[in-house]
Amino acid sequence: MNADARPLPEFPAWPQFDDAERSGLIRALEQGQWWRMGGSETDTFDREFAEYHGAARSLAVTNGTHALELALQVLGVGPGTEVIVPAFTFISSSQAAQRLGAVAVPVDVTPDTYCMDLAATEAAITPRTRAIMPVHMAGHFADMDGLAKLSEASGVPLVQDAAHAHGAQWRGKRVGELGSLAAFSFQNGKLMTAGEGGAVVFPEGERYAEMYEQAFLRHSCGRPRTDRRYLHGTSGSNFRMNEFSAAVLRAQLGRLAGQIDTREQREPLLSGLLAEIPGVVPQVRDERVTRNPHYMMMFRIPGLDEFKRNELVDALIERGLPAFAAFRAIYRSQGFWESAAPDLTVDDLAARCPNTEAIYSDCVWLHHRTLLGTEEQMHRIAEIVADTVAAV
């Protein structure tokens, strides 16, 4: 029987839930207060999430985009400033800055890890740069050693876009132990989810404690916790997470470590099998990444154009694989140019970002639930990818 004829065993579903989520929802319902200012689920989740990531504090918010926006805002990002972002990322990374009136400056990524290129980042710093935003692509850390040194030398702070990096570790350190703000997402496809949601984590230090207090005000319309007379101390918006989402996320956090363990076992097997396929190049792992939660299994087919790559993704889906086309270069989306864009053209940015140009055209990723499957399924995935690539 050939690879096409054999049925593909069903992958684990996503999102995953059990009685822990059910109990949490009932607990939130029966406490009688369904928003964070009266209930206890969101505050408890903040403490648990911060502890899990080695952070001093966490602030749960409505979604990951708002988490990025809030983190940038407490660093003083606004009109007249710039934020350096990788060109290969989901567009929220740039739009969080642009919605604050700051110019988003895209820089190239490395061709193997798909994370922010250090030399390109350094070259993009200007007197107007207020933040550098490394994105931990698919759970793989950007070069946090090099970026930390660059941040210290330039005086420009980092904001980690950790939307894919729940539970990740760099040289044994968790996201909250790396000395910079970080923003997470709990959108439906993420490694832990309540459908939507986000969080900003704050490392140790008095400066970050002050940022947390400012962030709390701004995420609650500028209103102090104990205010009874509408004395709004800052401008802000309503980014508060509700109690039901927090209750679900507490349950999701409880099974995250076990899921990461499984994906860490399966990914090397699948990556090795994919690497044996002519023309297929999996995402490379930096040896300094000591724990990768694997938000998506990413691989490239160098030389494939965007049209053929999209055909390949469609064919993989038809054969039962939850496959996706990689992100577009952010400067190739109309929304990037709507406001606060750099004074450059698409062609200018494309010339500066050759790796991004290649990756967004030839990269495919498989949903992380595939890595929760069996060893047999890893072999079947590789067989299907090999057969499909050969046919494109």
Results as ranks from 00 to 15, higher is better:
residue 3 A to F: 04
residue 3 A to Y: 05
residue 6 R to F: 06
residue 9 P to T: 00
residue 10 E to M: 00
residue 13 A to R: 14
residue 13 A to I: 11
residue 13 A to F: 01
residue 14 W to M: 03
residue 21 E to C: 10
residue 22 R to T: 13
residue 23 S to D: 13
residue 27 R to S: 07
residue 29 L to E: 04
residue 29 L to W: 13
residue 31 Q to L: 07
residue 35 W to S: 09
residue 37 M to R: 15
residue 37 M to P: 06
residue 39 G to N: 10
residue 42 T to E: 11
residue 48 E to L: 10
residue 49 F to P: 00
residue 59 L to N: 10
residue 72 L to W: 07
residue 74 V to H: 01
residue 75 L to Q: 07
residue 75 L to D: 04
residue 77 V to F: 03
residue 81 T to K: 14
residue 82 E to A: 11
residue 83 V to E: 11
residue 85 V to M: 10
residue 85 V to D: 08
residue 86 P to Y: 12
residue 94 S to D: 09
residue 94 S to A: 15
residue 98 Q to M: 10
residue 102 A to T: 08
residue 103 V to S: 07
residue 108 D to Y: 09
residue 111 P to C: 13
residue 111 P to S: 12
residue 118 L to W: 02
residue 118 L to D: 03
residue 130 R to I: 11
residue 130 R to F: 03
residue 133 M to T: 14
residue 133 M to D: 11
residue 134 P to F: 04
residue 136 H to R: 08
residue 147 L to E: 04
residue 148 A to N: 06
residue 152 E to H: 00
residue 162 A to V: 02
residue 167 G to V: 06
residue 170 W to F: 03
residue 172 G to Y: 01
residue 175 V to M: 08
residue 176 G to E: 07
residue 178 L to I: 08
residue 179 G to F: 12
residue 180 S to V: 04
residue 182 A to W: 06
residue 183 A to S: 15
residue 194 A to E: 03
residue 202 F to M: 04
residue 203 P to A: 12
residue 203 P to M: 12
residue 205 G to V: 14
residue 209 A to R: 15
residue 211 M to C: 11
residue 212 Y to S: 13
residue 213 E to M: 14
residue 214 Q to M: 15
residue 215 A to R: 10
residue 225 R to W: 09
residue 225 R to Y: 06
residue 227 D to V: 02
residue 228 R to D: 05
residue 234 T to V: 09
residue 234 T to D: 10
residue 234 T to F: 09
residue 235 S to L: 09
residue 245 S to K: 15
residue 247 A to E: 06
residue 248 V to E: 02
residue 248 V to M: 13
residue 250 R to I: 07
residue 251 A to E: 02
residue 252 Q to T: 08
residue 252 Q to L: 08
residue 252 Q to S: 03
residue 256 L to E: 09
residue 259 Q to L: 04
residue 263 R to L: 02
residue 265 Q to P: 02
residue 268 P to K: 02
residue 273 L to Q: 01
residue 277 I to H: 05
residue 279 G to F: 12
residue 280 V to K: 11
residue 280 V to Y: 10
residue 283 Q to M: 11
residue 284 V to T: 06
residue 284 V to G: 02
residue 285 R to C: 00
residue 286 D to Q: 01
residue 288 R to N: 00
residue 292 N to E: 14
residue 292 N to Y: 07
residue 296 M to F: 11
residue 299 F to A: 04
residue 301 I to M: 12
residue 305 D to G: 08
residue 306 E to W: 05
residue 308 K to E: 12
residue 308 K to C: 11
residue 308 K to W: 12
residue 310 N to P: 01
residue 313 V to Y: 00
residue 314 D to R: 10
residue 319 R to I: 02
residue 319 R to V: 05
residue 324 F to L: 14
residue 324 F to A: 05
residue 325 A to Q: 10
residue 327 F to Q: 04
residue 328 R to Q: 05
residue 331 Y to R: 10
residue 337 W to L: 09
residue 339 S to D: 13
residue 342 P to S: 14
residue 346 V to Q: 13
residue 347 D to A: 13
residue 351 A to S: 13
residue 354 P to R: 09
residue 354 P to K: 07
residue 357 E to N: 12
residue 360 Y to V: 06
residue 366 L to P: 00
residue 369 R to D: 03
residue 369 R to Y: 01
residue 369 R to H: 05
residue 370 T to Y: 03
residue 373 G to Q: 10
residue 374 T to C: 07
residue 375 E to G: 13
residue 375 E to Y: 12
residue 380 R to W: 05
residue 383 E to I: 14
residue 383 E to Y: 12
residue 384 I to K: 07
residue 387 D to N: 15
residue 390 A to E: 01
residue 391 A to G: 06
residue 391 A to Y: 01
